[in-house]
Amino acid sequence: MLAKRIIPCLDVKDGRVVKGVNFVDLRDAGDPVEQARIYDRMGADELVFLDISATYRGHQTVIDIVRSVADQVFMPLTVGGGIRTVSDMRDLLLAGADKVSINSAALANPELLVDASERFGSQCIVLAIDARATKNDDSVLSAQKWEVFVSGGRENTGIDVLEWADRGVSLGAGEILLTSMNTDGVMDGFDMELTHTVANLVNVPVIASGGAGKISHFAEILGDGCASAALAASVFHDEILTISEVKQFLSEAGIAVRL
């Protein structure tokens, strides 16, 4: 049976991990290979490296990160942040990434999803969507509405999340990384309604992101929330929860995980 995935997300900047595990006994918390090894040992099913470099030169260093991690840690790697062209994707995939995650570049040029999936296959292409619930003008009777935000959630594109998710998949995205700007950083649980709605709309896997704080949050989103995977950062980096205890809990709750 296909297992539900638990995915830690590491922020990288200018070739270094700037948000990762915070253990006291780390030799070098900024070393991507050491970070990957720790998460590999803990039972992570996949790693996401999110490149938050502000400059072109900074973005180039993510290729070195992928190469050094992939050479030594044999687990699935996804890279996102700052990817703009098919050539950027190619460089990352050749360096050892299994999937690339595209966000604003796909909004600016949706054809990028077509080009990328034809070139590398849909299974390599993740569409990242940052969603925020927006008020519907009509009435309380109308269904909940979410819009696509960019620039770390500051800017509203006005694009409907459900329409964009559906279109992104038909253009070639093979997975959706769905972050709720409403629940992100609050640690009060994943966005169940958003995730459930998107996951029921598309037939590609959906990774839920934003809001993990307690062990039960993972069971909720991977169970009733219909997510194929749950992504989290702080809750694992700060050792509020360990991946192995999360998986143990999920297994006891009857959710298929790789123990």
Binding site: M1, L2, A3, K4, R5, D45, E46, S122, Q123, G174, E175, N203, V204, P205, S228, A229, R258
Partner: peptide, 13 residues
């Protein structure tokens, strides 16, 4: 199968 998500992505037995 219409009941499964495609691609088949992740850890399986």
């Amino acid at each position: 199968d219409s009941d499964i998500r495609i691609p088949h992505t992740g850890w399986n037995q």
